[in-house]
Design a protein around this nucleic acid. Structure first.
Lengths: 229, 229
DNA sequence: GCCACGGTTTATGTATGCAACGTTGCATTA
DNA sequence: TAATGCAACGTTGCATACATAAACCGTGGC
């Protein structure tokens, strides 16, 4: 019964999601410390649901809970990010193999239509939307391989690198290239050319990886100032 | 100050670990339902730490929490297990690539000595110990690739398939074969023969996967018959 | 005999109080 | 002046109490 806020109840789940967004959007800056009491006050709930959300976020790797000390937003570790990209490449190569063998032409054609560089349909310049679309492309391919576990791990990796990925679509050039890359990959798959698809995919991901590698923390701080909304 | 039990306090972490063990050892049988109150009573603590442990276990995929209904131990899904093995192969292939390129001879020779089929040193017939040793072999190779993230994911996969893996070392034949496989893989790596190592490793894991698949079916059938319902 | 409805039960979800532990700052001493 | 000890504070960790919602069971009506 919050008198000033009729947005009804805020559940533990909501807090988890909101906190995750805040971390990924640098609203909670890496390295900073948050306390349960502070967050509880901010969300107008007790410490209990906040606590649960924080523990889930710790398992997500978004923050670290040091016993009796507090929660610290996890730093962005460039080396670790590179390793995530490395694993991602290995998994996406595997994903392509499965998709190439099992994914029906019909689904691939749908995907191709969606990423046709000449068609502006479904195109968005909202960064968050683009990140979602980009992820869904890769996830769709993984799903096409028929291996749900593979999908799960790729989603997990996406969670970790999303903090960078959303900085990846601030330039239109990168955006255009993404459309072209995706389209070409699907074309290779339609021809059942695994080698070609894998080569293209590897380049595509490596491009992102390099972008991430060259990022510095100061750049991250600058990007953060661009998001006061 | 528990009068009858001087093992002092049981923390949320302890409960998490114990519950995980109980699930992996079928003490809490898949499909069965557990309540917070029941576990709290069993561990002689309040619901709070139990709740935290359960939420972590849900994120681990060990159980499912249905809101306002209860916690259900996750079923062992044969198809899912197969998918875990599939992903594992992809990652271990990648792991070998890194190890072949970067792991120094000295470390590899240590590993070889440890798994020399002719040496009985460090050999154990305790199933749990063997599972630990087997896992540490694969993890050591992954660590040798220098990619900590890769290690993390392989450990996660190990967590999922351990429930099966521990059934894998009940026959001496399987045990001997494991020693031979591991030894040969390291030999390939010492010769920096990536292809050979990968081929052997793939066979090694596939053998486990098949073994697990068959064993699980019979195992589950037996367990099912024991169920009162 | 079967279906619908409502009270009761039971388990989760949340709030709050208390204790333990780590940290920090200051005072005291060598 | 620097180092050490102590005390006060703040935060987490756990326990307990209350709120809520789903499920179950029994009863009554059709």
């Amino acid at each position: 019964m919050t008198t000033r806020n009729e947005k009804s109840r805020v559940s533990s789940q909501d807090i988890y999601n909101q906190l995750k967004d805040m971390i990924l959007s640098f609203e909670l800056y890496p390295g900073s410390r948050v306390t349960e009491t502070e967050l509880a006050a901010r969300f107008q709930v007790s410490r209990t649901p906040v606590r649960e959300a924080l523990q889930r976020l710790e398992m997500d790797g978004c923050l670290v809970i040091r016993p009796k000390q507090g929660c610290f937003i996890r730093d962005v570790d460039i080396i670790e990010l590179t390793q995530y990209y490395d694993v991602r490449i290995a998994l996406e190569m595997h994903s392509l193999r499965g998709a190439c063998l099992q994914m029906p032409d019909k689904e691939l054609e749908q995907l191709a239509a969606q990423w046709d560089p000449d068609s502006q349909k479904g195109r968005s310049d909202v960064v968050d939307t683009m990140v979602d679309l980009e992820e869904s492309f890769h996830i769709t391919l993984a799903a096409g391989s028929g291996n749900d576990v593979l999908v799960k791990y790729l989603e997990d990796i996406n969670n970790r690198i999303r903090i960078i990925r959303r900085l990846d679509f601030t330039e239109k050039a990168r955006l255009d290239r993404t459309y072209r890359d995706h389209f070409e990959i699907v074309q290779y798959l339609l021809q059942r050319d695994l080698e070609g698809a894998q080569l293209k995919m590897r380049q595509h991901i490596l491009k992102s990886a390099e972008f991430a590698k060259n990022l510095t923390l100061t750049q991250l701080a600058q990007k953060r100032r661009l998001r006061p909304a």
